[in-house]
Simulated assay, not measured.
Amino acid sequence: MFDPKLLKYIPLVVAARIVHHAGEALEHTLAYSGKPRRSEHSLGKAAGRSTMKYLYRFAFLALLVVMATGCHRAPDEVLIRQAIDKVAQATEQVDASAVVAPLTDDFDGNGGGMTRQDIGNLLRAAKFRSETLHAVLGPVDVQPRGERYVASFTITLTSGGKLFPSELGVYKVETAWRREGHDWRCYSATWTQQI
Rank of each mutant, 00 (worst) to 15 (best):
Q193M: 12
L12D: 15
T154R: 14
A176M: 10
G44C: 15
K45W: 11
D118A: 05
D108Q: 10
I155M: 14
K172G: 10
M114P: 02
L7G: 09
G48C: 11
T29A: 08
Q117A: 12
I195G: 12
R73A: 05
E147K: 12
N110D: 11
D118N: 10
A22T: 08
G23H: 07
N110Y: 06
G146T: 06
E40V: 13
L64P: 08
V14K: 01
G70H: 01
A88E: 05
L103K: 02
T192F: 11
P36R: 10
I80M: 01
A125D: 09
A62R: 06
M114W: 04
H41N: 15
V19R: 01
K45D: 10
A88N: 09
L103E: 02
P139D: 06
E131C: 07
L168V: 04
A135K: 03
A189S: 14
I119C: 01
R17E: 13
L63R: 07
I119G: 00
A101M: 12
P139H: 03
I119P: 00
G34R: 08
Y171A: 03
S33F: 07
T91E: 08
T192W: 13
E92S: 14
R38S: 14
H72P: 00
K8T: 14
G111N: 12
M67W: 05
V94S: 02
S159T: 11
V136Q: 12
K45I: 12
A16P: 09
L26Y: 04
I10K: 03
S166Y: 07
S159V: 07
G48W: 08
E77A: 02
L133E: 00
L133W: 00
P4H: 07
T190P: 02
C186Y: 00
I155G: 05
E180P: 04
H182L: 06
Y54P: 02
Y187L: 07
A68K: 03
D95P: 09
S33Y: 09
P102V: 01
R178K: 14
A74S: 08
L63H: 06
A25P: 03
H21I: 09
V173W: 01
V136S: 11
S33C: 11
L6N: 15
A25K: 03
G169W: 08
G23R: 10
S166L: 11
A176K: 05
K53F: 14
G120F: 00
R145L: 15
E174F: 02
